[in-house]
Write a protein that binds this DNA or RNA. Structure first.
Lengths: 216, 216
DNA sequence: TCGTAGGCGTACCGTACGGTACGGTTCGAC
DNA sequence: GTCGAACCGTACCGTACGGTACGCCTACGA
């Protein structure tokens, strides 16, 4: 099925990006109450322009989500000179990036929008978010994990399973609770605990998948 | 802040339950395209009756979600005669229940609805879903975990952390992918793997939190 | 038998919003 | 200077939907 996501192939003009920014801002503020009129007013452009550029409301929404989601760029971790210490540092970095992203206001908004979209038999936004979120991390993490295995620092049969376990250990119930608007999880609250959670998740991951050599 | 959720205190009449069933069906089918007219037609009742019974659209939605969510009943596990074998069986049962629930069509629908709702500054549905989903499991699992610790079968400092790790190991990225409409995760696909996932998650949980005595 | 309550079906109202049309303005090309 | 393209602002249209009103039917108690 090969979901192909066009990203920035045809870059948006600065003016268009300003419009997308306005759309995202409204999305973050008012949730799904995004109306074409509101975007036009916020971006000081005419509705006609919106329709010319993005086709229809869905097109604008898709462009916004795609444009924002593509901005999430996980720092590349190099796999040269891999040893127990650098491996752990890399894993920790991935955990940190993952937690930082999913707890961000923008990510929450995009995920909510995509979930709402998916509730109407449309999976387009969902795919975009998946592709630029979890799957992006997976693409980058897997090679690291496999390098770790090759260096006899990790042990697993399926790197897919190892990745998903990592995801679970890091994310736990944080994302779903944030998406559901759990008041007990304030932004500050979560962010303050990120470092501890990162450390804890990494530790647990190494307990499950590390070899004896991993804490050399 | 003590979020109190009234559940079935004032039970719905059979007729009302029929209406709620109709509403849920529409929710599952059409996603968020739930209109009062559609519910009225489906339930063969008048819109006026809907408004008399539920106040407004939000009230109907809330009643539907609340009523359905409360139906999710995790089988009670007794903590008498706790030993390594029964503890493992209990944990496995929780994992199975959790996975079964979150992969169900109804649960996906309710969660999507609640997320959509949360995108509009309303956390009411989110709280209901949280309360009857993850938190319900937590309430029932924690005593088991603590009993396991008392019996020196488990070791942890915070039962809250232990619970959340359990949640992560079991759910991993399944729920968010389902909510986002990931086509790669079909219902059948997931359900076929539940048993393997349950076993795997339980094993990992015991590796992390079990004492030497746990596999007696 | 009559009155009343509950409820069905339908018509109706108001509004919000997606989408279109159009006049007016800016600006660059020639 | 003139033309045209791009675009702003606003007015406008059609429709979908939340919410209300009302006429009619049925059941039931006096």
């Amino acid at each position: 099925m090969a979901v192909t996501i066009k990203v920035n192939e045809e870059t948006f003009t600065p003016r268009q990006q300003a419009v997308l920014t306005a759309a995202l801002d409204l999305l973050v503020e008012n949730g799904d109450g995004l109306t074409m009129t509101a975007v036009a007013r916020r971006a000081s452009c005419s509705k006609e322009t919106l329709y010319k550029w993005f086709g229809d409301r869905d097109g604008l929404l898709t462009a916004t989500v795609q444009w924002q989601a593509a901005k999430v760029r996980m720092p590349q971790v190099d796999r040269t000179g891999l040893n127990a210490k650098t491996l752990r540092a890399s894993i920790e970095q991935f955990a940190r990036d993952l937690l930082t992203v999913i707890t961000g206001e923008v990510s929450i908004t995009l995920n909510r929008t995509a979930v709402t979209h998916a509730a109407q038999e449309k999976d387009r936004l969902g795919n975009i978010v998946l592709e630029n979120g979890p799957l992006a991390i997976r693409r980058r993490l897997k090679p690291i994990l496999e390098a770790g295995r090759d260096a006899r620092l990790l042990r697993f049969t399926s790197s897919e399973d190892a990745y998903r376990t990592f995801f679970g250990l890091v994310v736990r119930d944080v994302q779903i609770r944030l998406l559901l608007g759990d008041k007990a999880l304030t932004q500050a609250n979560v962010e303050a605990n990120i470092e501890a959670d990162v450390k804890s998740a990494t530790d647990q991951f190494f307990v499950l998948y590390g070899t004896k050599a991993h804490n050399a």
